[in-house]
Amino acid sequence: MMHGGNLIRGYGQGQGMVMNAHGWWFGLIPLAAHLIFFIILIIVGIILLRRHSARVRLYRKQNDPALRILRERYALGEIDTEEFQRRNQDLRS
Rank of each mutant, 00 (worst) to 15 (best):
M1H: 07
M2S: 04
G4K: 09
G5L: 00
L7Y: 08
L7M: 12
R9N: 07
G10D: 07
G10F: 09
G10W: 09
Y11W: 12
Y11Q: 03
Q13R: 12
G14T: 01
Q15T: 10
M17D: 01
M17Y: 06
V18G: 09
M19Q: 12
H22M: 14
H22N: 13
H22A: 14
G23T: 03
W24K: 15
W24H: 11
W24S: 13
W25N: 11
L28V: 05
L28W: 07
L28G: 06
P30Q: 05
P30T: 01
L31V: 15
A32C: 11
A32T: 07
A32L: 14
A32D: 01
L35E: 14
I36E: 13
F37E: 08
F38L: 11
I39S: 15
I39A: 15
L41T: 05
I42Q: 13
I43F: 11
I43G: 06
I43A: 15
V44L: 14
G45A: 06
G45W: 04
I46H: 08
I46W: 10
I47V: 10
L48F: 02
L49M: 05
R51S: 09
R51M: 06
S53E: 07
S53V: 02
A54S: 13
A54T: 05
R55Q: 05
R57K: 13
R57I: 08
L58H: 14
R60Q: 09
R60F: 08
Q62P: 06
N63C: 06
D64S: 11
D64G: 07
P65M: 04
P65G: 01
P65V: 01
P65H: 02
P65T: 00
P65S: 03
A66N: 10
A66C: 02
A66Q: 11
A66S: 09
A66E: 08
L67C: 04
R71F: 03
E72G: 13
E72R: 15
R73H: 12
R73C: 03
A75K: 13
G77K: 09
G77W: 04
E78K: 13
E78L: 13
I79Q: 05
D80P: 14
D80S: 09
D80L: 11
D80R: 10
T81S: 14
E82L: 15
E83N: 15
E83V: 14
F84I: 08
F84E: 01
R86W: 08
R87T: 00
R87Q: 07
Q89N: 08
Q89T: 08
Q89D: 01
Q89C: 03
D90I: 05
D90E: 10
L91I: 07
R92E: 01
R92N: 03
S93I: 00
S93H: 05
